[in-house]
Design a protein around this nucleic acid. Structure first.
Lengths: 345, 345
DNA sequence: CCTGCATCTGACAACGTTGTCCAGGCTCTA
DNA sequence: TAGAGCCTGGACAACGTTGTCAGATGCAGG
């Protein structure tokens, strides 16, 4: 009875250590270490005895101790905005595959678009001594990373540049993509074009807005304030923003949506309109081709972003490095119908 | 010149330790530890000096050493099938939120539906001494986890039960959901109903197939082999399977799709058919309501699965537990049009 | 039988942190 | 002013592993 009530008192609930294995196999500690790490210089007979003890006890090497001794964790960290956002799934997966190919484990976390939380997460990863970091930044100031960079933690930013420090960054050509998308609408006869995007403090949003403005200016079309809605992300407010610009004194005949979440909401709103309104969205999304009309988008390749970033990270770690660089991947306009609707004046 | 060429020779590229901080601040090692951990018993003046040294050197505590000493890593592992699958995004995110609320970090990896890779990943996580594991199993035999369970690693399986060991599992009612979905089609007049699903060795697939058969049997409808397609996941083969059952000697008038990836492909195929074919899919997906017709689905709440599993995990860790249990969450039929089409005979 | 060499094995220190325990200095009271 | 008690700070061991190095063993050759 006293026995059943007894709980393991050690940490890890009494996990066996190499010492235990050594005792059971009747060999020295270091010999166990040799077997576990497949180092040479162990008789087959000895190895067998050790292996037997390992299996019998269910021993697993404690990597914390190993890391402490060796100095490298063979793991990298990924900090992104929201794991639930479909844009980040393929990106994350691509980074994981590259990491795996290099024998590293991926640890990831979401910043929930909160700069403080991003910093907290990054520092937690650094405390665990990850070998490198892939960061989709939420904040604008990454000077807190200076000691880490100096200490040799490989770092690559993705999707948005680092703030106030000099570091690698891999991103899509937001300016060019937005410019192309808006120019596409203009080419189809639109002149009153709305823009709905996220906060301009986010680099990609600012760039896309800039692309919108540039395309309009190139065509000599003055932009009205009522056509632009910034800092809007939650569906309710996107909906209102879209409705507002559709009923403004000079209503828009087309909308450019700054990211996939905005696009989806705008599609819902346009579905309820009597007259057709053209739409081009930034970011592709699944099923965009199945909607009626299909949604024309400016697509960026999330997986490619992840792959490029991860590869660059490991090249930093190889020492094949490399002054910080900015790598911009092109976007691709995919026409599916919604962006080719003529203006319904 | 010799100076610029010099690279840090220590591991971690010369990261400062508490000893360095202590030396710089002119205090003892343990005092630094106290400051870092906000332990009481340090004069404000001393604390200030220590803090200054920490900032100046860019010191970050080495968590490996801490873990080694303390025995708890404050981290949990999540092993899922594919991060890029939209079903797992919200699940993963939910687990992360709960972990965060408990002050734990989430480490996750994809098994790519490969049992060996699952085991490899799980053991890597165990070597890092995660406190607990949330596993979406790919394999059917988890006896390799016995030592871990014995050692007190909290473990919860999600979406599919563990194989050959006794462990907590949280899953959706696949049988009931499929039964409801198929019964719904029958209630709308269908008798020739097709089923396309994944390999029956996957528990959820087998259960959904069982639900389909049961619903048909309840209605007294004999099932023809040509109406069933199992072990089919990639789009190309799903497409062919769907086309085959639509052109069989006794062609189906409705299809039940076993998971969201299948559903999406089937939608594409049905879009190309001249006559309307009814469709109910297992798993909800974004934009299902925007398609024409909207896609009727049996929805499971991925986030809720994740939350439930994570909460249970931490209850195991609290010691508030708990013999292994099987928790089945109900599904919900969401009618949107595609499942209510009458048979076009 | 001893020497030299190669092969296998184990003792020991170190990695950076935290828990334990004790020393020294201070304040307060009698 | 002495003694008690409190507060602050530091010395030291321990966590589980790996690298270093030296000891033990076996064997061949003199």
């Amino acid at each position: 009875m006293a026995d059943t009530a007894r709980r393991p008192e050690n940490r890890y609930g009494n996990r066996p250590t190499m010492k235990d294995v050594a005792a059971r196999a009747g060999v020295g500690l270091k010999t166990v270490s040799r077997v576990v790490n497949a180092e040479p210089g162990v008789t087959p007979e000895t190895e067998r005895r050790v292996q037997e003890a390992i299996d019998a006890l269910g021993f697993r090497r404690n990597d914390s101790a190993r890391v402490l001794r060796k100095g490298s964790t063979a793991s990298i960290g990924l900090v992104l905005e929201d794991l639930a956002d479909p844009f980040y799934g393929p990106l994350s997966r691509a980074v994981e595959e590259i990491a795996r190919a290099h024998g590293a484990l991926l640890i990831n976390g979401s910043s929930a678009e909160d700069p403080d939380r991003e910093q907290e997460l990054v520092l937690a990863l650094c405390a665990r001594r990850v070998d490198g970091l892939v960061i989709i930044p939420a904040g604008n100031d990454h000077r807190y990373l200076e000691p880490e960079l100096k200490a040799g933690v490989a770092t690559v930013f993705v999707d948005r540049p680092a703030g106030r420090i000099d570091a690698d960054v891999v991103l899509s050509d937001s300016f060019g993509g937005a410019h192309d998308g808006v120019a596409h609408l203009i080419a189809h006869g639109h002149r009153r074009i709305g823009f709905i995007g996220d906060m301009p403090r986010i680099h990609t949003s600012a760039e896309r807005l800039r692309g919108y403005r540039a395309a309009m200016e190139d065509a000599g079309i003055p932009v009205e304030d009522a056509w632009m809605s910034l800092g809007v992300t939650d569906p309710e407010r996107v909906r209102r923003a879209a409705e507002d610009m559709l009923t403004a004194p000079s209503p828009v005949t087309a909308i450019f949506a700054g990211n996939n979440r905005v696009t989806v909401t705008v599609v819902r709103v346009l579905n309820e309109q009597r007259r057709p309104v053209a739409l081009v969205g930034f970011d592709d999304f699944e099923l965009a081709d199945l909607l009626r009309p299909g949604v024309t988008v400016v697509a960026q390749d999330a997986a490619q972003l992840g792959r490029t970033a991860a590869e660059r990270l490991f090249r930093q770690l190889d020492g094949t490095l490399l002054t910080p660089e900015r790598i911009e991947l092109p976007t691709r306009l995919i026409t599916r119908g919604s962006g080719e609707l003529p203006p319904a004046d």
